[in-house]
Amino acid sequence: MMKSICKVAVVQDSSVPFDAQATTDKTCQLIAQSASEGAELVVFPEAFLGTYPKGLSFDAPIGTRLPEGREDFMRYFEGAVEIDGKELQQIKESAAEHNVFVVLGVIERDGSTLYCSIAFIDPTLGLVSKRRKLMPTGAERLVWGFGDGSTLNVIKNELGNIGGVICWENYMPAIRSAMYAQGVEIYCAPTADDRDTWLSSMQHIAMEGRCYVLSACQYITRGEYGEDYRSILTDNPDDVVMRGASVIVGPLGEVIAGPVLNQKTILYAELDRATLIKSKLDFDPVGHYSRPDVFSLHVDVQEKKPVHY
Rank of each mutant, 00 (worst) to 15 (best):
L142A: 08
L142P: 03
L142W: 15
L142N: 03
L142S: 03
V143Y: 12
V143S: 06
W144G: 03
W144C: 11
W144F: 15
G145C: 11
F146D: 01
F146T: 11
G147W: 00
G147Q: 04
G147T: 14
G147L: 13
D148R: 13
D148M: 08
S150F: 11
S150N: 09
S150I: 06
S150C: 14
T151C: 12
T151S: 15
T151K: 02
T151P: 04
N153E: 13
N153S: 11
N153A: 12
V154P: 00
V154S: 09
K156Y: 12
K156C: 02
K156W: 00
N157Y: 04
N157K: 02
N157H: 15
N157R: 01
N157A: 07
E158K: 10
E158H: 10
E158S: 13
L159S: 02
L159D: 01
L159T: 06
L159N: 02
L159V: 05
L159C: 01
G160K: 01
G160E: 04
G160R: 00
N161M: 08
I162N: 06
I162P: 05
G163S: 11
G163N: 02
G164V: 05
G164Y: 03
G164N: 11
V165G: 01
V165W: 04
V165A: 00
I166L: 11
I166R: 04
C167E: 07
C167W: 04
W168G: 07
W168E: 13
W168N: 14
N170T: 14
N170G: 14
N170F: 07
N170K: 10
Y171M: 09
Y171W: 14
M172C: 12
P173R: 07
P173K: 03
P173S: 03
P173E: 02
P173N: 06
P173W: 04
A174F: 08
A174M: 08
I175W: 00
R176K: 13
R176M: 14
S177V: 00
S177W: 14
A178H: 00
A178P: 01
A178G: 10
A178C: 10
A178W: 03
M179G: 04
Y180W: 12
A181D: 15
A181R: 07
A181P: 02
A181H: 14
Q182K: 10
Q182R: 08
Q182E: 04
Q182P: 05
E185K: 09
E185W: 13
E185S: 03
I186H: 00
Y187L: 06
Y187R: 03
Y187H: 12
C188P: 00
C188V: 02
C188T: 06
